[in-house]
């Protein structure tokens, strides 16, 4: 299989050119030019000896000089110059980042790229969630992200309605521990959908359900629109995370087959021999019918026949259906 690297040359060159101009024109960030009476972390730890050992076991406690954005290193890179505080021992004389006082700006002084690049315009920031709402800095726990609690607990503390959905009979395996909220969501993202930057909602689904990526010849248009038209990714009563069970989910956008208004024959039946004789593999087909059997067949689960509901390249059988019935 031949692979070609896509080259969207013109827009990329345009963006690179803009980037270069910006880089050349703008002066360095003010965060690199902090001034004040710095005393060094050793001075801090003379009193705050409870923090030192724990902090030394975190990435933050082991940063190299080149990893600091300004001249200040160690404790003072976040807390600012500590000279006055060391002198007075007054808590008011040192900056203590909190969720309410712009603590995020201290974090973003280093975390300028990656997913946190978008934090400033993220939905969480917009709603007064701060870095310290979820993270703690001095103690290395709950993985490399320095979370204050296991991820699910943190998310559920605000999104309690979502927690309940994961108890429904059909759910992604979050409570089983095989997924986390961040398997789909980018909590730092500025994307309006709460997923990774630059992605549409269906892209987040297709990362794992890639078999439905296509693009296919015969499409089901809501699949191209938004998976959530039919599915609730957090949990549902109906199987396969369907927002309503079939056939109701389908009947909201489709009319039932006209065969559904047929009355059914009461009794057993079998396929006429003349029909199946040419294909011996199908002899002996039989069934039992009741008055409502036509309805029961066609108004119970649409995907029994329309199995390729996410799209396919294989045409269905009828010409009048133009191959698009998603039966194959």
């Amino acid at each position: 299989m031949d692979r070609k690297i896509t080259r969207p040359v013109a827009p990329l060159l345009w963006l690179l050119a803009v980037s270069c101009v910006v880089l050349l024109v703008l002066p360095p960030s003010s965060s690199m030019a902090d001034t004040g009476n710095y005393v060094g972390s050793e001075t801090c730890l003379e009193c705050h000896d409870d923090i030192g050992p724990a902090m030394s076991r975190t990435v933050h406690g082991n940063l190299q000089a080149y990893q600091y954005p300004g001249e200040a290193t160690g404790c003072e890179s976040c807390h600012g110059p500590g000279g006055a505080h060391a002198e007075s021992e007054d808590p008011a004389d040192i900056f203590k980042p909190t969720a309410d006082n712009g603590g995020a700006e201290k974090c973003l002084a280093c975390h300028k790229t990656g997913t946190t690049m978008n934090w400033g315009t993220s939905t969480h920031a917009e709603n007064d969630v701060a870095c310290l709402s979820c993270h703690q800095i001095h103690i290395g726990t709950y993985g490399k992200a320095l979370l204050k609690a296991p991820q699910e607990q943190l998310c559920e503390s605000c999104h309690q309605d979502v927690k309940g959905k994961f108890q429904l009979p059909s759910h992604h395996p979050l409570k089983e521990g095989f997924m986390t909220c961040t398997s789909c969501h980018d909590v730092h993202s500025g994307n309006m959908q709460g997923i990774a930057e630059g992605e549409m909602v269906r892209d987040a689904c297709l990362n794992c359900h890639t078999q439905y990526a296509g693009p296919f010849i015969f499409e089901h248009s809501p699949v191209e629109e938004d998976c959530r038209i039919c599915h609730d990714p957090h949990g549902a009563v109906a199987n396969n995370l369907l927002k309503q069970n079939e056939p109701f989910i389908c009947l909201q956008c489709h009319q039932p087959h006209f065969h559904t208004i047929l009355a059914g024959w009461e009794g057993d039946y079998s396929a006429p021999p003349g029909v199946v004789d040419a294909d011996p593999g199908y002899e002996g087909l039989s069934g039992t019918s009741h008055y409502d059997s036509m309805k029961r067949s066609m108004l119970t689960k649409c995907t029994q026949c329309h199995a390729s509901v996410h799209g396919t390249d294989l045409p269905s059988q009828t010409i009048t259906g133009q191959g698009r019935a998603l039966n194959r």
Partner: peptide, 25 residues
């Protein structure tokens, strides 16, 4: 109302029963 009429049986009152769900966990 005629069971044997092939042209139409517009009584759909039963179809909810086919797909109703009720789970207790």
């Amino acid at each position: 109302d005629h069971v044997g009429d092939s042209k139409g049986a517009y009584d759909f009152t039963g179809i909810g029963d086919y797909s109703d769900l009720d789970y207790t966990t």
